[in-house]
Design a protein around this nucleic acid. Structure first.
Lengths: 199, 199
DNA sequence: ACCTGAACACCGTTCAAGT
DNA sequence: ACCTGAACACCGTTCAAGT
């Protein structure tokens, strides 16, 4: 699909679709340029480097994520945002690992970040607590996402670890990076926040 | 320092020291081989690929981490292990990002993982809860570590986000990836685990 | 002034050729 | 049989040369 005129938006959109079709390894400057039908260097006139381009692609993907807003409870709101961020990133294999490694803080990242901060303030945390708790939550999503991205490929290692312990039933098989695993950790954090806020 | 005979241990030790001196970008097969004074391909006779070598280097670094054992309280034990894992990884810049991206599950990783599992069982979690909570904790350390690794380099982005929200005092400056930030999130998780275990 | 593409300085890994 | 290093198939990015 030839593009009339190169803009940051057309580059990011093309890169996102390329990644959806061909995965993370297709997200090189050269492959993206080939997809655009342009010289690799042409991209550098719109983005200073590859990282900045991937930031833009990640933020584009997050446009799909809704913030339910202040009408739902603070914990429902936080859980909804983070669950949908995880699911959205996993729907875009080209960019999931980048989201995991580097929380997207472009326009959409800032929008969702603001939603989380407001929810935590509504929960009753003091200002420093809001900032700290938000970073902990964002870090947790990133990590859970990284586990989900790596899980399918290579990780019988986890099973060995959980089997290497006595006192535990040997047949509790952890599903690394699963939605269930993600939800459990998220509940721990929300429980902890409730305790911290004195609820 | 020329090495008499190449073994997995000498390769991993040399790579760890190289990384300590010259950082993550020095951890290429070619640079490590040059440091060993051998052909890059010689390393492949001891490790199937670069990832396996980095796994071994990471696990070597974790030999420094103590497990205080079951005599301390379960939460003290978990906090001690995870705090020291974070500090140890940060002391080895060549490998910190790799630890963050991929929980080391070699001999030392398994040892520390077992300590965490035992502590969680002692806290009163049921077996599935133990496995889930352990993965959440490990994911959290990995993410906090990734933030600490990336923080110094480039992240005024975070400050923008926290300033972009009304209702929060604009001068609460989050220190991304700081030890304080790490400790706060860890406390949230431990609080949440205590709630889950009914303590 | 703007844009291109050749070139630089690397990668991890394969594999054929040497000893 | 063992080991080496040339070669393959890539990278992100710089920069000089073209229009």
């Amino acid at each position: 699909v030839p593009v009339r005129r190169l803009t940051p938006a057309t580059i990011a959109t093309t890169a996102l679709h390329l990644g959806d079709r061909e995965g993370a390894q297709a997200m090189s400057m050269r492959r993206i340029a080939a997809e655009l039908g342009c010289d690799p260097m042409a991209i550098y006139r719109h983005f200073p480097n590859r990282e900045a381009l991937l930031d833009a692609v990640a933020d584009l993907a997050l446009a799909d994520v809704d913030d339910p807003g202040p009408d739902s409870g603070w914990d429902t709101r936080v859980a909804a945002i983070l669950t949908e961020v995880r699911a959205t990133a996993l729907r875009h294999p080209g960019i999931a690992a980048h989201v995991a490694a580097r929380p997207p803080l472009g326009a959409n990242g800032a929008r969702l970040g603001a939603g989380i901060h407001h929810a935590l303030a509504a929960a009753g945390l003091p200002p420093e607590g809001v900032v700290f708790a938000a970073q902990a939550l964002i870090a947790y999503v990133a990590a859970a996402l990284a586990m989900a991205v790596n899980a399918g490929t290579r990780d019988a290692r986890w099973h060995q670890v959980s089997r290497s312990m006595d006192g535990l039933p040997g047949d509790v098989m952890p599903v690394v990076g699963s939605a269930e695993q993600f939800g459990y950790g998220l509940r721990l954090l929300l429980n902890g926040i409730a305790v911290e806020a004195g609820r």
